[in-house]
């Protein structure tokens, strides 16, 4: 297990280095000089040059890359071109909205998908299965931002149970903050839950045909007992993989949903940064998202290697 973990860790580090190179290279291609953009068309050349020096734009590109990566390793993302404040602080301020939103959505998605998938597999071919599968087929087809708008229409505008947007802030109390994240989390979670329920059902159906399930039944367990004791546990491997992938989709999906609900998260930060050509912020947020995706997948890999020893032997 240690050798496998080290191998995966090495692959994680290589992936992160290449990803950072790609992101840096793409942003470096960007036309226009941030200093000139910030000072406007009428700026004096020496003022622009001074600002370029201040922002560290006059040093060779490889040196800027190393400074950027070196800073990130220490948790320093540099200084925003527009706001002149540390990017780390800006990202941290927004992460307290985006991260809980993604986790809230992941929890909801799991809470909906697991029972639905297990229920459908247990009632394969019957009315319950057909209903759940029909609902998930529809759920997969619904764009989450459209669903979010419909939730606003029903629960905020018509019923007035929730506010139509904005974030109360954690300092106003946990419940109030969670309340303002509830509609966004449901909108993010539902389409993901549909996918997860389908994976859960098909993983379980695969397991139900295995010899050990027949043995479990032969031992005298009822279909339901065998399903819960042996089926669900074994179906967890494909489900875990999808769950890991979903977290990254939720984090990225949160960018769109934040727009619907005017939440001050990473998504809104990145769009403001794009429009003001605050490229260091764009670079850092994109790197952070990619870091999250790669790391979560790494953790999932380790998790199911721990669950299934065959996977360790194979690599």
């Amino acid at each position: 297990m240690l050798r496998y973990s080290l191998k995966r860790l090495l692959s994680l580090i290589i992936s992160l280095v290449i990803a950072s190179l790609v992101i840096f290279a793409v942003i470096e291609v960007a036309p226009g000089d941030p200093a000139s953009f910030m000072l406007g068309v009428n700026a004096q050349p020496d003022t622009v040059a001074a600002l370029r020096t201040e922002l560290g734009l006059d040093v060779p590109k490889w040196q800027r890359y190393l400074t950027w990566v070196g800073g990130m390793v220490q948790g320093e993302f540099g200084t925003s071109y527009t706001y002149r404040t540390p990017v780390t602080q800006m990202v941290a301020d927004r992460l307290v909205v985006s991260l809980p939103l993604a986790l809230y959505a992941l929890t909801l998605s799991t809470l909906i998908a697991f029972p639905a998938g297990i229920y459908a597999a247990a009632r394969r071919g019957k009315a319950g299965d057909v209903a759940v599968m029909g609902a998930t087929q529809l759920g997969v087809a619904v764009p989450n931002f459209w669903f979010a708008m419909m939730m606003v229409l029903i629960f905020a505008i018509n019923l007035r149970w929730f506010s139509a947007g904005g974030f109360a802030g954690w300092d106003k109390g946990f419940l109030l903050a969670m309340k303002s994240l509830t509609l966004p989390a449901i909108s993010l979670a539902l389409p993901q839950a549909a996918i997860l329920a389908r994976v859960m059902r098909s993983a379980l159906l695969d397991i139900l045909g295995e010899d050990f399930m027949r043995t479990a039944r032969a031992k005298g367990l009822s279909r339901r007992q065998a399903l819960w004791r042996h089926g669900v546990r074994n179906a967890m491997i494909p489900v875990l993989t999808i769950l890991g992938l979903q977290f990254s989709f939720l984090l990225a999906g949160a960018i769109i949903i934040e727009n619907v609900f005017y939440l001050p998260g990473l998504g809104r930060l990145v769009f403001q940064a794009i429009s003001s050509r605050d490229l260091i912020v764009v670079e850092s947020v994109v790197m952070l998202l990619v870091f999250a995706v790669i790391t979560v997948n790494f953790v999932v890999d380790l998790a199911y290697a721990a669950v299934d020893p065959r996977l360790r032997a194979r690599t």
Binding site: S11, I14, S15, I18, A19, V22, I23, V26, I27, V29, A30, P31, S248, F249, A252, G253, I255, I256, V270, A273, I274, L279, V282, V286, L289, V290, V293, I294, N297
Partner: peptide
């Protein structure tokens, strides 16, 4: 395959953000 894994780490929205920024 490693190149594939790398591209997988960039959700299409993130690629779009990068391209749009440029």
């Amino acid at each position: 395959m490693r190149g594939n894994d790398l591209v997988f780490a960039f959700p299409s929205l993130v690629i779009a953000i990068l391209i749009t920024a440029v």
